[in-house]
Structure formats: C-alpha cells, structure tokens
Amino acid sequence: MTPERMLAPMLSLRDVNTHIAQYHILHGVDFEVPRGSLTMLLGRNGAGKTTCLRTIMGLWHASAGSIRVDGRDITRAETPDVAQLGVAYVPENMGIFAGLTVRENLLLAARAAEPDAKRLDWIFGLFPAIKTFWNALAGNLSGGQKQMLAIARAIVEPRKLLLVDEPTKGLAPAIIGNMVEAFKELKRTETTILVVEQNFNFARSLGDLVAVMDSGHIVHTGGMDALAADAALQTRLLGFSLDAHQ
C-alpha cells in the first residue's frame, strides 16, 4: 500500500447530492471517516442519514459529487461492487432473511469461503444467541437477536468498512448494553465503522468522531468528546429530543 493511500481516509464523501424520484434529499454532503475510527453520524429524523448510507452502498445513486472508499472512486459503482470492495452494510430494518436459518444467513454473508472455527467462536463470544439459535429460522428471533445476527453477518469475514444504520433502534436497554460491548470489541480489531444513530448515550459511549446532519447537509464534524462535553452545541445541533431519549 502506498503511503498516500494509507493516509487517505477509509471513506470520503465530497459534495454528494442524491435525488429520490423528484425529491432532492442530499444537498452536497461532505465528510470523511478516517481509517480505524468509529464515526457516529447523528441528526434528527429525516436529516438524510439513511439516504447517506444507501448512497454509499450504491442502493441509490448520487446525482452529483463523489464517494471514495479506501481511495477508490465508487460514486457510480453498483451495490455488489461496493460490497466486494469490503464494505458491509447493516440496514435500518436489519435485512435479515427471515425464511433462512441463522446458519444460512451467515453462510450467505461469507463470500470467500466458509468461515473458520476461530472466527465463528469470536462471533459466538460477541453474540452468544447466534450459537444458541444456530439452526432456528431467523424470522423467529427476537428483535435484539435479529440485530445481533445482522451485525454478525456483516463481520463474518473481515471487512474494511462497516456501515450500520441505527443498531439500537427498538432495543431494550440491557441489550443496548450488549451492543456497546460488541462494538467496543469490534473497535479493537481496528475495523473502520460508520454508525447512524439517534441514541445519544449510545453514540457518546462509542464514537471517536462525529458528523451531524441536518436537512441533507453536514452541519458539524469533530471529536465525539467535544460534542459530548458541550451541551449548548448538542442542543443547537440535535435539539432536545436526544436528552429525552434516555
């Protein structure tokens, strides 16, 4: 790897615009996710966070601007090509295949070869439920178990970049605690992670960096600590709703 590529961020968006049908959703989004960092993408409902992730994945195409992953331009790339570059995506609805077993869900996510026992044991360590319900239909899992499966699926093979859309959505506090631990473990593997989140406590306990969106723009970027310490800034960027969140 050339030194420039090493220094280049894992993910960078430059002036990305996205239209869905006749609606203009992203109005020039600019931000970067440095290698090995966990970046939180925050913002109110409808700010464009999910659209942002979907545009990176190529599920919607940017009408202007450019997106680079690990130095490669993927602005016009199709979804499978983006995934093959090493980008894993956990959508907001988790995208679990309900009619497939837990095992089959993981088998499908392992593209290169069947994952070895060591990797599986590591995943079972993160999410014991996966082991317990190995042969159960994924559709019969609880919401929290589904979320664990969705994340397990994303990391069943080593990936460069993880895009996770609201991993805490609809989860009970105890399970959110598990989730925090799992992400902390993931951070130790130096995987680059971008998480869209509404739950500020969750975001604060994990994020290295933060980007805040509003109405299709990035309105703030910086360290998570700085934002966590600045209540006035939080209120201005995110409104009061986040404090009420927990």
Binding site: M57, L59, E78, T79, P80, A83, Q84, Y89, P91, G95, F97, A98, G99, L100, L108, A109, R111, R153
Partner: peptide, 12 residues
Amino acid sequence: ENREMVESLGYR
C-alpha cells in the same frame, strides 16, 4: 425475500 440485501452482501 430481499433482493437489495443480497446485493448489499456482494452478489450480482
């Protein structure tokens, strides 16, 4: 079940 997710997992 979910075409989009299969593509997101890297399959054409």
